[in-house]
Nucleic acid binder design. Structure first.
Lengths: 341, 341
DNA sequence: TATTATACCCAAAACGTTTTGGAAAAGCAA
DNA sequence: TTGCTTTTCCAAAACGTTTTGGGTATAATA
């Protein structure tokens, strides 16, 4: 059985109050006593019971994050990198990170959030992949529960977030392609309920308009943010009577799937067809050819979000609660050629 | 403020004992009363305080898993898929999953494990990427703390695990290559402290021996399980006076990095050179060409591990505490050609 | 010397559950 | 009616902390 503060106190012939306060660094305990306490506590391997502390302090020192889990989405590098960022930030602030899985908008998702909020086992929640009308935001705001998000919603609710200006990013990307003589630029998107889809798609359209290219409905397709989804959707696009000369994926995974589809049609990516993605995950560096992408700082964003969340939990004001970052256009061989040459 | 059991009791003019027992399904409360309790509890949005329950019950209903975090490793698909499996299994058993990050064998890693064990905030721990002399296993076993692992160690300690027979897998893989006329088969491994490296490397050597190929030291290199590591290491191997005709990566990421290096040398993977990996993550399907790999059921393994862990925690006997699975050799175009033709 | 300030320590309450060990009420048998 | 079960409920203890509100020496001041 683990050692409790009572045993430490007994060993030292002190009250548990004094032991507690010595360890917490209060100044109403003699320096000498504090030393004794700290030493024996360590020697005895004393670590406060998390549950007891949580109960008394009424906070959990834990933040929560929910990933889609397996079906219908599969784990993607975005989540992995995001979790790494959250985890490292949590560790460095002496927090714990609680993870759960639930498919977006499922019954299970409602359950998990409700449980976490009501049972007070997390002090705050990090959201990603926001949806236009995100019930999670509504729910958490309603319960006055601390949240921060990667991305925003269409709701009239104020909450701290970090967001990529992916619209502008996609405008740049389309421009880049148009400058290389592409006119038939396809777009493989995500379900329309995701904010990221709306933003990126708007950028795509704006980019087309800026380049004076009419928007061709047949070149617009929806997929599910996975490699396999991108692959299947691209197959359809490439089977069109007049196939696109460029494909933009809503994320890198989609683009990677599209590259495979193109190869299987006997097309050489980087000369017959251009393909680009979004995210700038490590994958994109190692594809054949390396993938042009819009890079967002996933890991760092996760870290910053944790810091924002901590401030929100502590009730401190946020210097800047709506942070907008520019993704970086990384041009690689998958698009870096002129179609007409 | 969240609603407590006391408020529910007051509303119903019952004792908190009765409310508690009604909700927990004891049979010493009248059916009618139970209905009333359940209904109002739900109506009031009552959820038991996790901390209070943990404190009283002396268990956390939480399992822990620690990932490397960012440096020096980067998030890889293995972790992502493993976490998805753990998370889904945890959810379906009404558990929580606590995640932390710490670089292998670091000071921080010791800290996290010690804290989790001593503060009783998790009931059990899942380990992956075991090391030959894994201090974590020693430490947990010493403290009689429930653990399950993906892989084993060289220590004389008994604990439940699921393990891949990756040795046999690599033997098959080498055989596959040898049958296609390869004699210069390189191997890019991981640091020797990992069990997986020892096993897979042994399989590589055994496979060479079986094919009557002398082991050439210059074709053996160590990397760090990342794409970038595989890329850099492969560059060195390909710069040898007599370059290898096949490269086996200790995992898919390494192989993916190697593919890139090969392409950059102007080699065509799948005809000039063969490259294969291990893991069978989704990445491997979409590379160019698709990557030959040894597939292991990461997601399912994680799920099964959680179930084993739960039994260990409950003190129930395990029907089978050392499970050994065969990886499946998936032959794709990256190796499926004969060198001499 | 008497008073006050300072330094150090502690008992008890509280956090919100679950569990123990009955007690009261109701039903049944004699 | 009396005694015995059975059913239904509950008071109080316990889990291990932190925090509140003093209390008791010792030192400083008058």
């Amino acid at each position: 059985m683990a050692v409790t503060i009572r045993e430490v106190a007994k060993r030292l012939h002190l009250s548990i109050t004094t032991v507690s306060r010595a360890l917490d660094g209060y100044d109403d305990v003699a320096a000498k006593t504090r030393q004794r306490v700290i030493r024996t506590a360590r020697a005895m391997g004393y670590v406060p019971s998390r549950a007891a502390r949580q109960l008394r302090r009424q906070r959990a020192d834990t933040i929560g994050y929910i990933i889609p889990g397996r079906a219908p989405y599969f784990t993607d590098p975005f989540s992995a990198e995001f979790i790494a960022g959250l985890g490292d930030a949590a560790t460095s602030h002496n927090l714990d990170l609680l993870i759960s899985t639930a498919p977006p908008d499922s019954e299970a998702e409602h359950h998990v959030y409700a449980r976490w909020v009501q049972s007070r086992q997390v002090d705050g929640i990090v959201l990603s992949r926001l949806r236009l009308k995100d019930w999670r935001v509504k729910y958490l705001a309603q319960n006055d529960f601390p949240l921060v998000a990667h991305g925003h919603t269409q709701l009239r609710l104020d909450f701290p977030y970090i967001e990529m200006d992916s619209r502008t990013g996609f405008v740049q990307l389309v421009k880049h392609l148009a400058e290389r003589s592409h006119r038939r630029i396809a777009y493989i998107g995500a379900p329309a309920k995701f904010t990221l889809q709306v933003e990126r798609f708007a950028g795509y359209q704006q980019g087309l308009a800026a380049a004076g290219i009419a928007c061709d409905e047949t070149l617009i397709a929806e997929s599910d943010l996975t490699r396999t989804g991108g692959y299947q959707t691209a197959q359809r696009l490439l089977a069109l009577p007049e196939r696109p000369t460029a494909i933009i994926g809503v994320n890198d995974l989609t683009a990677i799937g599209a590259m495979r589809a193109a190869r299987e049609q006997g097309l050489v990516v980087g000369s017959d067809i251009a393909i680009a993605g979004y995210d700038g995950t490590e994958d994109s560096e190692h594809t054949d050819p390396p993938l042009t992408t819009l890079k967002q700082p996933i890991y760092d964003t996760a870290q910053r979000l944790v810091e924002m969340l901590l401030k929100r939990i502590a009730g401190e004001p946020l210097a800047d609660s709506h942070i907008i970052l520019q993704p970086e256009l990384i041009i690689r061989e998958s698009t870096n050629f002129d179609l007409s040459s």
